[in-house]
Write a protein that binds this DNA or RNA. Sequence first.
DNA 1: ATATAACTTAGAGTTAACTCCAAGTCAAGC
DNA 2: GCTTGACTTGGAGTTAACTCTAAGTTATAT
Lengths: 126, 126
Amino acid sequence: MTIKDVCEKFDVSADTLRYYEKVGLINPVPKENGIRKYGKPELDNIEFVLCMRSAGIPVDVLAEYIKLVRDGEHTAEQRRNMLIEQRVILKEKLDDMQKAYEKLNYKIDVYYSKINPIEEKLINKK
Amino acid sequence: MTIKDVCEKFDVSADTLRYYEKVGLINPVPKENGIRKYGKPELDNIEFVLCMRSAGIPVDVLAEYIKLVRDGEHTAEQRRNMLIEQRVILKEKLDDMQKAYEKLNYKIDVYYSKINPIEEKLINKK
DNA sequence: ATATAACTTAGAGTTAACTCCAAGTCAAGC
DNA sequence: GCTTGACTTGGAGTTAACTCTAAGTTATAT
């Protein structure tokens, strides 16, 4: 799989993939004639990283995590602690966003009744 | 209420509050002797904005929204559409983060069984 | 053989959202 | 009447995470 295939598969730019590799967030990808060829392990790595990034886990934290994976089995406990720490942060963010989502829903309802009070009344009187 | 009180109430820096005001994300705060005095409407404004910011809604989007509020009642529909648009984006983010959260939970379990296989067995055999 | 298109690199530039700084004002306490 | 401390300003600086640029290489099509 070329870099372009991976970009399409995960909807990410080639620049981002190379950047992630450069900063150690993705393991070095094997090359043929100087061109990156992505296999299963690379794709798994990328999928994990993109998923964690979409949750807002910082690049440097993920880079450290991947480094620990490379360092071997004896870092497992440290890695686990990292993940637990990130889970706490993520949970807080999720809760904040859930709250904002509900507030947004509420506000949209309020605007609805402002704009369309007649229809609103009809609904309520049903 | 002084700026310091507001900082403590909402756990936000004075710089951020002034920055939000400067870029139009918070309405101009009335001043006594050149010093900001925050009242109920200001606090409501700030709470809303901080909540939306914690959900990742961009500063410029919020600034435009606040501008529309100032422009009066006839912008209500436009505002509502903005909120609906942001709700879609927020929902997607929430779903992504929920997925990441679950993946993280799963990974933490995996590390747990790696590190502490004996205890893990005990739990499973119960 | 040469043009095209997709890749490569190192490193510079961009963007969003703060965050900090220097210089100044003002009320209160000694 | 002077110092202290909390505020004020405009504007510069920082950080994270890309994103772009320029110059170069390589396989394929003409």
